[in-house]
């Protein structure tokens, strides 16, 4: 299991495993009920995580030099 594979698992934990524990209206964050904020936060985090994965995955480095 390489690091970038582990990173890809994070969104699955954030969305599928954590959801029962964040399923509340309060507190509001950025004007959003907490459960909605949680999902939106993970959309942003997924984007960041996949960008990091893209950067550290050797498969992309090889083709970049071509």
């Amino acid at each position: 299991m390489k690091l970038h594979h582990l990173l890809t698992v994070l969104p699955f934990i954030g969305v599928l495993v954590c959801i029962p524990f964040v399923n509340t209206v309060k507190p509001y964050v950025l004007g959003l009920p907490f459960v909605i904020f949680w999902m939106v936060m993970w959309v942003v985090l997924t984007s960041i995580i996949m960008w990091i994965v893209y950067k550290i995955d050797p498969a992309n480095r090889e083709s970049e030099t071509q």
Partner: peptide, 24 residues
């Protein structure tokens, strides 16, 4: 044209999905 396109898109696409929040 190349497979790298998909990996890059995997990072950009979630932000694009955020638009759905406004639909909600």
């Amino acid at each position: 044209k190349s497979e790298k396109v998909f990996r890059k898109n995997a990072a950009i696409s979630p932000i694009y999905a955020m638009l759905l929040l406004f639909v909600f």
